[in-house]
Design a protein around this nucleic acid. Structure first.
Lengths: 215, 215
DNA sequence: TGTTCTTTAAGGGTATACCCCTAGAAAATT
DNA sequence: AATTTTCTAGGGGTATACCCTTAAAGAACA
């Protein structure tokens, strides 16, 4: 028997879900709550296998609820549910321990499938949500790849020096490691500052990481 | 009519797909190639809507093929296909312009659905692949969140200083911006070095970015 | 209401980074 | 074979970062 907690501030919605789940012999609606703090309080007092958690709860939102739950409980699965297919919402809440994310336009069949999948230890996402995340993933990487083109290419040796700078080595240490003179390393360093339009090593590190220059 | 290029070094596999696609009235197998360079050459000479591309081609692998294709063509969709549900393969090839990733144990129905989805401008991933990526995403973020706990917490003011260091400002500039003394900033700087176990500002920047300390 | 943490600040010093200039040899590219 | 880029390295200098110590006032916490 799967004990489910419904957490959403829209009563009608909660009741709708409730009646859907009641028809299922392996599911039990353990409770209904309408605010973030109530979720936390309920889980502390009762055995809950899965929370159907609205991402956009008033006062304490879903993400904060997840954070709070992680503090004392790791068994309860969280299936996030939202009106919005927003990448930031999705990644944020996955970030904080949710195992799935579905949209409110999800049908009965899919809802049940999602619940059973998550309780079974796997993750579940609406198709639309998957699309959004994947697109985000690709865009992000594409953007960083494009930026690379902005820089004059960084030579092999410069890249070695850059890597060692990022690893917190001093110019002298880098010279020793590469068996070259201190002055040579300084020379590479200064080319790097030029090419990457940085003012100091802090900038070198930031720009290198942001633009994935270490491949 | 969808023009499809099959690219895989296993002839039997290619022929199998070929016979599946022949039965579809809206699909046309434009060609079959068995090596990476042949993919590039074929796309240069012929109109191809979608490539069913084996990730693990010998000599020039699928990822390199994607890179090469991006140089001169952006219309051709790429549906990656592989024996292995390996996170690194998946992210690498998505990175480089593939729109979908399916496994070789995918059935006929799903294959056709994947092709039509990708040609239609959306992405497609086998369920197993989605699981893998999502798990990777969550693990990654969880790991970086855990690391945060390793640091003694960084105070409000220290965080401000840290942010300005990352933005390439000198100690003097930071002092001016925050209306405090040079010595005070140096003091914060040195606390940061201590708390974050860094040797210099390069380390501060790297550790701050790696651990998302700027929230 | 103490106690701890944070923010502020200083003196005095060393190490390192950054800047300007030059320049030959090797390597890659055309 | 010729040109460009990269790697090498020096001299000489200034600016900045980093280290050690100390310390007072305010904020936060128990």
């Amino acid at each position: 028997m799967i004990n489910i907690l419904l957490a959403d501030d829209h009563t009608m919605f909660v009741d709708g879900i409730d009646s859907i789940l009641k028809a299922e012999s392996d599911m039990n609606v353990a409770g209904k709550v309408y605010t973030g703090p109530d979720v936390v309080a309920f889980v502390k007092e009762n055995k809950v296998d899965l929370i159907l958690l609205d991402v956009n709860l008033p006062d304490m939102n879903g993400i904060e609820v997840c954070k709070a739950l992680k503090e004392f409980d790791n068994n309860t699965k969280i299936l996030a549910i939202s009106m919005f297919n927003e990448e930031s919402f999705v990644t944020e809440i996955l970030n904080n321990g949710a195992q799935g994310y579905i949209l409110k336009n999800t049908g009965r069949e899919e809802l049940l499938k999602a619940i059973r999948t998550v309780v079974g230890g796997k993750s579940y996402f609406s198709d639309d949500v998957t699309q959004t995340i994947m697109k985000g993933l690709m865009k992000q990487r594409k953007a960083s790849k494009q930026k690379e083109g902005f820089f004059p290419k960084i030579s092999r040796r410069e890249k070695e020096v850059l890597r060692l700078i990022i690893e917190e080595h001093t110019t002298q240490e880098i010279a020793n490691k590469l068996f070259i003179s201190l002055k040579t390393v300084e020379s590479h360093r200064s080319s790097l500052l030029n090419k990457m339009n940085a003012r100091n090593s802090a900038g070198l590190v930031r720009i290198a990481i942001e633009n994935n220059l270490l491949d």
